[in-house]
Simulated assay, not measured.
Amino acid sequence: MFAIGLRLAAMAMLSTMFMLAKLAGEAGVALPELMFWRQAMSLPLIAGALLATGRIRLLRTNRMASHAKRATTGTVGLCCNLGAATLLPLPVATTLGFTTPLFAVLIAALVLREMVGKWRWTAVVLGFVGVLVIARPSDAPVPAMGLAAGLGAGVIVAIVSFQIRDLARTEAPIACVFWFAFYGSLFTAILLPFYAQPHGLREWLLLAAIGLSGALAQFLITAALRFGQVATVVVMDYSALIWSTLYGWIIWDHLPAVSMWMGAPIIVVAGLIITSREHFLSRRISPTSALDEAATEEAQPVKIPAGT
């Protein structure tokens, strides 16, 4: 229950970050600048917390190249996530982010050549039907760039999940978070001379709040995975849809279109099928029988750590 509570709080913080990013975008803050401050402001928070608790040694690594590679992919994903948040209504952007498990199954099957059974293939087809319902409504067309950004975020986060799984074999979770922010700040700083501009107090407060909420979300996601199983806590990610809908209603006086109410449950159900199936297989397949099981039904499932 503690892990579930942490994950729910993480989704609240993540939804808040995207809401603030949308407000900042409307105030004229360019996307590259949003990305830079989202990363840069989390660095002193992480380093300060580790210094205060005497755990700065957790940042030591012998895999700096792997962190840089993960940060390169993750920065593209952050661009897609923030781009979707600024271009689309928040509930739509959030729902498109739920396609990550669908793309993770596709990557596992087509790239990693893992065996994928009928349950997960059915969930993938069902999930993309939900995307089509949202993308082709009769009453409110979804902007093509926003749709591309939302689906791009799903693809990139799925790829990042596999990179994190590899890094997690040797690296502390907080080290993955810190070096992602470090390299992400360096990458986006290159664009600042072309996009940075003077801001008023409101814009700087928004940027500071984006960095703080994003860092808190990452801390809470990491803590939730420490105290609970992935398959248990990841289901709580769908609570983000509640927050995004609430923010859209209170701040922008916007409620989702009928197509959104129809498509979102389909995508959520598809994600739940994948999560429950992977949880079932992870309990069913023992180390001694994994190869035999893979030959007859499905291989051991991919663990997908959630997060941005």
Rank of each mutant, 00 (worst) to 15 (best):
112 L>N: 07
164 I>W: 08
156 I>H: 01
163 Q>V: 02
107 I>C: 08
117 G>A: 12
147 L>M: 15
128 F>M: 06
109 A>H: 09
155 V>D: 04
113 R>L: 10
160 V>N: 12
154 G>D: 10
152 G>Q: 02
125 V>A: 15
113 R>A: 13
130 G>N: 04
169 R>M: 08
167 L>M: 12
118 K>A: 15
115 M>Y: 09
133 V>M: 05
109 A>C: 04
174 I>C: 04
122 T>I: 08
174 I>G: 01
108 A>F: 06
125 V>C: 13
141 P>A: 09
117 G>P: 04
136 R>T: 07
147 L>I: 00
173 P>H: 09
123 A>Y: 14
146 G>H: 03
109 A>Q: 03
139 D>T: 13
112 L>C: 02
141 P>K: 04
155 V>H: 02
132 L>M: 15
158 A>V: 10
147 L>Q: 01
171 E>R: 06
168 A>K: 10
126 L>C: 13
132 L>H: 03
169 R>Y: 07
131 V>W: 04
149 A>T: 06
131 V>K: 04
144 A>L: 15
132 L>G: 14
137 P>I: 00
172 A>E: 13
173 P>M: 10
125 V>W: 08
153 A>S: 14
137 P>H: 01
130 G>M: 01
151 L>W: 11
130 G>A: 03
113 R>D: 04
161 S>F: 11
127 G>V: 10
132 L>E: 08
152 G>F: 05
154 G>V: 08
108 A>H: 08
111 V>W: 14
168 A>H: 09
116 V>L: 11
149 A>S: 13
110 L>F: 14
138 S>Q: 09
113 R>T: 02
138 S>R: 06
173 P>Y: 12
168 A>S: 15
141 P>D: 03
137 P>Q: 12
142 V>P: 00
107 I>W: 09
105 V>M: 13
153 A>N: 15
108 A>W: 12
158 A>F: 12
151 L>M: 12
119 W>H: 11
154 G>K: 09
140 A>E: 11
151 L>V: 10
148 A>Q: 00
135 A>I: 00
152 G>T: 03
105 V>P: 12
116 V>R: 14
124 V>K: 05
141 P>W: 03
171 E>M: 03
144 A>G: 04
160 V>M: 10
153 A>P: 00
138 S>T: 07
133 V>T: 14
170 T>D: 11
116 V>K: 11
164 I>H: 08
112 L>P: 05
135 A>G: 02
145 M>K: 01
112 L>G: 02
148 A>K: 00
143 P>A: 05
157 V>D: 06
105 V>W: 13
124 V>M: 06
115 M>D: 11
129 V>P: 01
129 V>Y: 06
145 M>T: 02
166 D>W: 06
133 V>S: 03
148 A>T: 07
126 L>M: 15
117 G>L: 12
136 R>D: 02
147 L>G: 00
156 I>R: 00
121 W>F: 14
166 D>N: 10
108 A>G: 15
162 F>Q: 09
